[in-house]
């Protein structure tokens, strides 16, 4: 699939998939003796839902950590919107328009749902500190404008009732949803989701799948997600990358990946030589 032409095309369900928004080239990441990622390359195209799958410890989360700047790979390069990315801090990468959620929820526990999602608007707010201190004028106007955006996200995720609840008190499934809301609030160009449905029951998974599809469809957000539930992955993703022991063993449409013998081996636990 990597040799697919860079031109845009239209999916069966009528969404437009554009050129490469991100390209990961020959990334190798080592922790001391452990090689977490071995010479991996793949791309993510504008408007698509790209899944990253693989057994535990395959290097999926590490890959997201490389993309959003927490880990610095020893080898390889990353191109974002066609440009090679120099060494950058995670907050700078966020400012470029890449948002994410974490495998283990990382919400701001002491803050309400509303404040958590408002914090996601950080990069869209520009009033200097002294104007925020005075409040009246630019700061207040900006707060209200951004609050309106956040309220739309709250409506979209159907979490109106918990707007003012401290997130620490919310059940797990709702916390995952708030975390998605916080990432959406940034209006990212690329949204990375690390196991958004882990630990959820069937109903919650269905809700979450619907939100992900709607985000992609309505806002045109490009999404890369890690997920263990194969049913979900095959249902919602356009293309799938398969990692195993830090290596890429498959890349293609869900059907192609499902038919790939190496992938079948990895998932059935056939021993590697």
């Amino acid at each position: 699939m990597n040799d697919m032409s860079p031109d845009s095309y239209t999916t069966a369900d009528g969404r437009t998939i554009g050129g490469k928004i991100m390209e990961v080239k020959n990334i190798t990441l080592r922790f001391g003796g452990v090689v977490a990622i071995k010479d991996i390359s793949f791309d993510i195209r504008e408007g698509e839902i790209r899944a990253i799958i693989g057994p535990n410890g395959a290097g999926k989360s590490s890959m997201l950590n490389v993309i959003n700047g927490f880990y610095h790979p020893q080898e390889g390069e990353i191109l974002f919107r066609g440009e090679k990315r120099g060494p950058m801090k995670p907050y700078q990468i966020a400012q470029q328009g890449i948002a994410r959620t974490f495998q283990n929820i990382a919400l701001f526990k002491g803050m309400s749902t509303l404040d958590n999602i408002m914090t996601g608007r950080f990069t869209h707010m520009k009033a200097p500190v002294w104007k925020q201190a005075i409040w009246r004028g630019e700061a207040e106007r900006e707060e209200i404008e951004n609050r309106e955006v956040v309220e739309k996200i709250i409506d979209f995720l159907e979490i109106q009732a918990i707007r003012k609840t401290p997130v620490g008190r919310l059940p797990y499934g709702l916390q995952k949803r708030v975390e998605l809301g916080r990432a959406l609030a940034a209006e990212p160009k690329l949204l990375l989701l690390d196991e958004p449905m882990a630990g959820m029951n069937v109903e919650e998974k269905e809700d979450m799948s619907r939100f992900i599809l709607d985000v992609n469809d309505e806002f045109g957000t490009t999404i890369a997600l890690i997920e263990h539930d194969m049913g979900v992955v095959m249902d919602i993703s356009d293309r799938v990358v398969v990692l195993d022991y830090g290596k890429k063993i498959g890349d293609g449409t869900p059907d192609e990946v499902r038919a790939n013998p190496e992938v079948i081996d990895a998932y059935l636990g056939v021993s590697h030589d």
Partner: peptide, 10 residues
């Protein structure tokens, strides 16, 4: 509350 999460939102 969570410095790494603060960083990934900019």
């Amino acid at each position: 509350d969570m410095d790494i999460a603060a960083e990934i939102i900019g």
